[in-house]
């Protein structure tokens, strides 16, 4: 008989418990409207979490996502205020994400800097660039409605955000589980040396993953600009923490090689529902980091306990 593994089902159990809890606590919780709102407002987190999941699977980390998001927010707000076409803004945003992601990837692969330090550096640099770009304060003005429509618009009475989330997760799922690139990502995360011996171009895979993470973060920034209608240089603080929380809750391993897109989606739902419940129950938003912190800690502890049980033969004391 297969041994019961709590860590695999943990996120689903949490999701079920949260939905049951929510339906008891608030009448408005179990409505289509509330759930479509939950997903509509989780677009940015979804984008960043998918990127973070990929980065974590290859055994890296990307701390720069919050700052990339902020930079692309202010740039796209500036362009939108100047009346630039939305397609052009999209291209500029992708270029920003690509550039920062490529810098991260090159620093990590070519100069052998730890992912943590490299992305910490780009995080500081990009945050500073953001403030330099706006001169400190937010960029305000009247943004064209056509730009705001990219997130506020509806198709067949369903908010665009829901389509974005579904498309992104399906796409990421297909890439990770059905393509050669996806298998290479897992191979690199499972063991770089082995992957190299089997002919995987480890450096290229790594750079590609950081580029994807950068582009997704930049797209999230563009969506934030469209959502709030101003270019706020302070946006995106703590997003790396939220994305890591989503991934860890969703069963993505921080040591690489493990994690699925489905898991990340469930993790996203868990974190978004918690946020939604706290809002419905009027809990101080300042308390949210405390709750998130405790959740990530409990989940990580449960997972690491099980991992420990699996490899008893290794030196346990250290």
């Amino acid at each position: 008989m297969k041994k019961f593994e709590l860590s695999k089902l943990l996120s689903i159990i949490m999701l079920v418990v949260l939905i049951l809890l929510g339906s008891q606590l608030s009448d408005s919780f179990l409505s289509v409207r509330n759930f479509s709102n939950i997903i509509q407002y989780s677009v940015e987190t979804a984008l960043i979490s998918i990127g973070m999941a990929l980065v974590l699977i290859i055994g890296g980390i990307d701390l720069s996502v919050g700052s990339v998001l902020a930079f692309s927010t202010v740039v796209s707000a500036k362009l939108a205020l100047a009346g630039v076409n939305t397609a052009v803004i999209l291209i500029v945003t992708i270029v920003i994400g690509f550039t920062v992601g490529a810098i991260n990837g090159l620093l990590i692969t070519k100069t052998k800097v730890e992912a943590f330090m490299a992305t910490l550096g780009t995080m500081m640099v990009m945050r500073a660039c953001t403030f330099l770009f706006t001169g400190g304060g937010p960029l305000t003005g009247s943004i064209k409605t056509s730009f705001q429509q990219i997130i506020k618009g509806k198709f067949l009475n369903v908010q665009y955000g829901i389509f974005y989330v579904i498309i992104m997760f399906v796409l990421a799922g297909i890439i990770l589980s059905r393509t050669r690139f996806g298998r290479h990502v897992y191979a690199v995360g499972g063991g770089e040396e082995t992957a190299k011996l089997f002919g995987v171009q480890v450096d290229k895979v790594k750079i590609a993953v950081y580029i994807i993470s950068g582009i997704l973060a930049a797209l999230a920034g563009m969506i934030i600009a469209a959502r709030i209608g101003i270019g706020e240089p302070r946006s995106g603080y703590g997003y790396e923490m939220i994305a890591i929380t989503v991934c860890v809750v969703g069963g993505v391993s921080m040591t690489g090689g493990k994690g699925t897109v489905t898991g990340t989606f469930i993790g996203l739902m868990v974190i978004s529902i918690i946020k939604n419940l706290m809002n419905l129950m009027n809990i101080d938003t300042n308390a949210q980091p405390i709750v998130n912190g405790i959740i990530i800690l409990i989940v990580a502890l449960i997972i690491s306990r099980e991992m420990l049980g699996k490899r008893k033969s290794l030196v346990k004391q250290i």
Binding site: M241, V248, M254, T255, A287, I290, I294, A300, R305, M307
Partner: peptide, 20 residues
Amino acid sequence: FGKLQPFVVTLVTKSIMDGI
């Protein structure tokens, strides 16, 4: 004893203390 990564642990304690 928790066998967690220092990065995760201290980010969590940071986030909890900031919240407090």
